[in-house]
Every structure is written in structure tokens, then in C-alpha cells.
Design a protein around this nucleic acid. Structure first.
Length: 514
RNA sequence: GGAGCGUUGGUCAAGGGGUUAAGACGCUUCCCUUUCACGGAAGAAUCACGGGUUCGAUUCCCGUACGCUCUACCA
């Protein structure tokens, strides 16, 4: 089968998509690009009762943010449209009818109450999982058991009905999953799934197969939760006569919660304090707000990289940091893992930090500038950029920048008491006075010049660095943490450095005296 | 309950019949720096368990256990 590769991501707009959904989209995207194929987005909105306002747009925005772009689908069009199942409503019935004609499906008139009654009855007689299938369909109200005339009149009277798949009584259904190999199911274990609902809409199963066929999809890459219904889909291809163009299947492992067991959910994020959604999301019903990775400060590249490696690894390459382009080049379905991966927020942060370190300080500066201007602080681009250059070494998110650099923009008002009490005395006071004076004569305030200046000062005066550097640091910034002292002084500039030393001297005296 | 899928260090994972079983995150210790971070070094796994097959199994087969998914006129 050498048809051009066409894959799709087919979410249903029932809420904000989370990590798992983005990853499914990403894998589809990577595969399509690697194979020089087409990546399609199709909206599966066949259940109007679960429709959530804004969910579709949210999904589109999320993928855009991650750098996952589609070739066909909402917003971009394509030759296989429309790409929203609600707009394709008219297409499905004919295929359901075709299945009825060929004897693979049938009308069922059972009411929900009757269905419940059947299940109760079966349970009472010792069957724990009653199914509408080979064992029970003969006792239900459907076109298999009702006289033809009655079926006709019921239909003619506009009575409510569904169309169900007639699962063969005893048949082996095999499918070759690209990730898991051959998977075998017995049709006797499968039930007569509803294909066409009484509201005139198809169910996922029918719509999915019909659309994949019509859109000439070659590979279905979706979550593992679909594996149990895959045999139904295979049957559908067979019964519709499309077996020769049936797509390949690849069922992705799930993303699990970091602690304990089970699928990652919004609850876990709330409980453990990390996002599970790519973007901020406000529930239109409850107005409840959920933070997104973007708003938490993640770079889209870091997020995509991190999410891709949750279940996939190119193998022999010893590397974890990949650009989208690299991932496309390296992507193969064979290298997708079989088992679920627990999401680890610490690792996610590590990815961001790595991207932070590699980020262009000029770009970081433009973002940090916004934070500064909110605080009423203005400064030159060059200076902010230089500070960012230092900051990106120790910060994972831009949101941490201010706490690690406020002393460059505002004069210190509090000084680390421990250090002052420990280091401040007549001797150090004298030293710092000398240092201040000699700093005044220092013209070159570059990193390297100050570095050598400071060290030679210590050496010439026969001092210990411990008597000079920590004190100078506190004088300049007030805090004991931060970049190297020469860097600190350099970024502050000569004038401010000397000013602050003078001010600190007086403050230190006060602190010591009490 | 049933069906399907899965199980390599706390986590992500490479590998695959014979190896000292990669690497990363996190953790601990050390070096660098009298700071934080960065960087460097080191430490920690009888490859879930039990049987086979084999000269040899973490790798192949079969069980068991555990976990997950599905079991709707939801996707």
C-alpha cells in the first residue's frame, strides 16, 4: 500500500484538551511531516449533549502555540471537507443503510428503559456484563426479530430507532497494531454497538470509519483507550467493502499521573500544583480557572519537546533536547513505547530550564521588560539584556526573573543579617573603604576587568577573599545569592556600586550596634 | 466479572539470548565558586514473580501477580 500518507487528529470539543491530546496531535504531526504526508484536524462533534463552548477554539490555539500546524481542517480548509462531523451529518446515513442492506446492521427500537430492564434481567440471571449482542438481540425489539411489516410501519410512523452493528456470532478479528503487533479479538466478546443514534447522528464508530475512508486516511494514530473498539472498526471496514484501504492502526500508551496509578487528570494537576492543560482554560459553566503550561511560563518548544519524549524516544541517539525539525527527522512509530508514562513535572521544568539557557537574551529581555514596566521600572535594552544573560543561568521561568534581579533595579533596603553580623567589623569596614576608593579609580568595569581587579585587590592587601567578596555582595545587593560578585558590580555600574557601598556602610553599622 | 493492553533504578528511558544493563530527571556526596545557579565527578537496578526453551535468559514461550484501558443512543 503506497498511498500518500494522510493522518488525522480527531478531538471532540467536550472540554479543554490536555497533555495526552496534544501529544496525540504531535505524534500525528511528526509522522505526517516525516513521511511527507498530510496532517488533518477533524472535529468529532457528534454528541451535541456534551458540546462545550470554546473547546474547539482552545484546541486549535493550543496546537498553534506548540507549533503543530495542520494542512487540512478548521481554519485552513482542504479538498476533503467539511472537517467538522456535525457539518457532515448528511453523509453517514447512507453507509448505515448500506450495512442494513448487506445484513451487517439492523434497526433497534428499544427504549432506554427497555435496555435497562434487559440489563437488570441478565444481571439477575448471573451475567455480570450484559451486552446487546448475539446472546440477547433475539429477545429485543429490533428488525431482526420483528415482522417486516411492523418494522416498516414503525419506521413510517417516525418512531425512534437506532442502527446497530450485527456482530458475527463467532469470528476471529485480527488487527496489526503498529505499536503492539497482532492483536486478536473474538467477535463473541463484542456487542452490537450503536452506529447511528436516534437523534440522526452517527456514533463515533461509524463517523470515524466513514470519515477516515472518505478522507483517505492511511494511518490512525490515537490513544490506547480506543484499542478495545478497534475490532469493531475493522469489522466496519470489512462490511463496508473498504478492507483494501483500511488504515494502519497505532494505539498510543496513556500518560499517567505522577503518583499512584491511573490516567493523568486535571485533579492531579490541582493537587500536585502543576498544569495539565497547554493553555489557560476557564470552564464556561463553573467559571473555574485552570492554569496552562503557557501561562505557567513554559516555552512552546520546551513543552513540545517534553511531551514528545513522554512515550517516544528515537533510540540510539543519546540526546533529549530536540527541535521540532529534529523530531520530524527522527520520528518513527516503531520507537513509540508500549507502556504508559508517568508525567513528571520536575523533568518538565528541567526541559524549560534547558531552553531558557539556550534562549536569546534579547528576546528574554523584551519579555522581562514587560514585567519591569508593570513595576514602573524602565531601563535600557542593553542593560536588561545583559541582566537576562546572567539570569537565564539560574531561572527556569521568566516569572522568576524579578526575584533574582530586583537589586539591579531598586536599591537594597534589607541586608542579609547573618552575613552582616558575621562579617562586619572595624577591619572589614576599613577594607571596604579602601576598596571603594580604589574602585573609584577603576575605569574598566567589564566582567573580566573587575574579576581580576577584585582578586588582585585581595592579594595586594594580603586579605582573604572571604573577608571581601561576601561583604561586597551584601553591600551591593542585600542578598547572599546571585551572580558572581564581579558580574554583580559590573552590571550595576561604577557609580551605583560606590553609592551602595557608602549607604551599606552606614546601614551595617546600625545593624551591628543594636 | 469479561476482553484487550502493559510491567528495565523513585521517574522518563536505551538495549536486546552471552554487556561492567546506556543516558536523562530527581536525590545524596564531592570538585569548581567562600553565594545561588551553571559546569564537572561519583553513588544507588540480582531488567515484577514462577516455570519452561537453551550450553546460557533481562531479552523467546507459558503461567501468576500487579497495573491500566474498555465494557453508554460518550468520544
Amino acid at each position: 500500500m503506497d498511498r500518500p500518507v494522510r493522518v488525522r487528529y480527531a478531538p471532540s470539543p467536550t472540554g479543554p484538551q490536555h497533555l495526552g491530546g496534544v501529544r496525540t496531535a504531535l505524534y500525528n504531526f511528526l509522522f505526517a511531516k516525516k513521511q511527507k504526508g498530510t496532517f488533518i484536524i477533524r472535529i468529532e462533534d457528534t454528541d451535541q449533549t456534551r458540546f462545550v463552548e470554546g473547546a474547539e477554539n482552545y484546541m486549535l490555539e493550543s496546537l498553534k502555540w506548540c507549533g503543530i500546524t495542520h494542512d487540512e481542517g478548521p481554519g485552513v480548509g482542504g479538498n476533503y471537507g467539511p472537517y467538522k462531523q456535525s457539518e457532515r451529518k448528511h453523509l453517514y446515513r447512507q453507509y448505515a443503510d448500506q450495512l442494513i442492506e448487506s445484513g451487517h446492521a439492523y434497526y433497534a427500537f428499544d427504549t432506554p428503559e427497555e435496555l435497562d430492564a434487559m440489563r437488570e434481567r441478565m444481571k439477575a440471571s448471573g451475567i455480570p456484563n450484559p451486552q446487546y449482542g448475539a446472546a440477547t438481540r433475539d429477545y429485543m425489539k429490533n428488525s431482526l426479530v420483528l415482522p417486516h411489516d411492523e418494522v416498516k410501519t414503525r419506521l413510517a410512523n417516525g418512531e425512534q430507532f437506532v442502527i446497530r452493528m450485527k456482530m458475527p456470532r463467532k469470528e476471529e478479528i485480527k488487527l496489526q497494531d503498529l505499536i503492539r503487533g497482532w492483536v486478536v479479538f473474538q467477535s463473541s466478546q463484542l456487542d452490537d454497538k450503536v452506529l447511528f443514534k436516534s437523534d440522526g447522528m452517527p456514533t463515533y464508530h461509524l463517523a470515524n470509519v466513514v470519515d477516515d475512508y472518505l478522507m483517505e486516511i492511511t494511518h490512525v494514530i490515537r490513544g490506547e483507550e480506543w484499542l478495545p473498539s478497534a475490532p469493531l472498526h475493522v469489522m466496519l471496514y470489512k462490511c463496508l467493502g473498504w478492507e483494501d484501504v483500511m488504515p494502519h492502526f497505532a494505539h498510543l500508551p496513556l500518560i499517567l499521573r505522577p503518583d499512584g496509578n491511573g490516567k493523568l487528570s486535571k485533579r492531579d494537576g490541582d493537587r500536585l500544583g502543576f498544569p495539565v492543560f497547554p493553555l489557560n482554560w476557564t470552564d464556561p459553566e463553573t467559571k473555574e480557572n485552570s492554569i496552562g503550561f503557557r501561562e505557567r511560563g513554559f516555552f512552546p518548544e520546551a513543552f513540545a519537546n517534553m511531551i514528545a519524549l513522554l512515550g517516544w524516544h528515537p533510540g540510539s541517539v543519546q540526546q533529549e533536547l530536540f527541535s521540532m525539525e529534529e523530531m520530524i527527522q527522527l520520528f518513527t512509530i516503531e520507537h513509540i513505547g508500549k507502556s504508559g508514562a508517568k508525567f513528571d513535572f520536575e523533568k518538565a521544568k528541567w526541559f524549560n530550564h534547558e531552553y531558557m539557557k539556550k534562549a536569546d537574551s534579547k528576546i528574554l529581555a523584551t519579555d522581562f521588560k514587560k514585567v519591569l514596566s508593570e513595576k514602573g521600572i524602565t531601563d535600557s535594552d542593553e542593560h536588561i539584556t545583559a541582566i537576562c544573560e546572567s539570569l537565564k543561568q539560574r531561572c527556569t521561568f521568566i516569572s522568576e526573573f524579578w526575584d533574582n534581579s530586583f537589586y539591579f533595579f531598586t536599591e537594597p533596603t534589607v541586608y542579609d543579617e547573618q552575613i552582616v553580623k558575621k562579617k562586619w567589623n572595624e577591619k572589614t569596614k576599613e577594607i571596604m573603604k579602601e576598596l571603594s576608593a580604589s574602585l573609584l579609580g577603576q575605569t574598566d568595569f567589564s566582567f573580566s576587568a573587575l574579576d581580576t581587579f577584585l582578586h588582585s585587590f585581595v592579594k595586594e592587601k594580603n586579605l582573604n577573599t572571604g573577608d571581601v567578596l561576601p561583604v561586597l555582595r551584601i553591600m551591593l545587593s542585600g542578598t547572599k545569592n546571585g551572580p558572581a560578585v564581579y558580574e554583580l558590580a559590573s552590571l550595576l555600574g561604577k557609580e551605583k556600586s560606590i553609592e551602595r557601598m557608602a549607604k551599606a556602610e552606614a546601614e551595617f553599622d546600625k545593624m551591628i550596634s543594636v
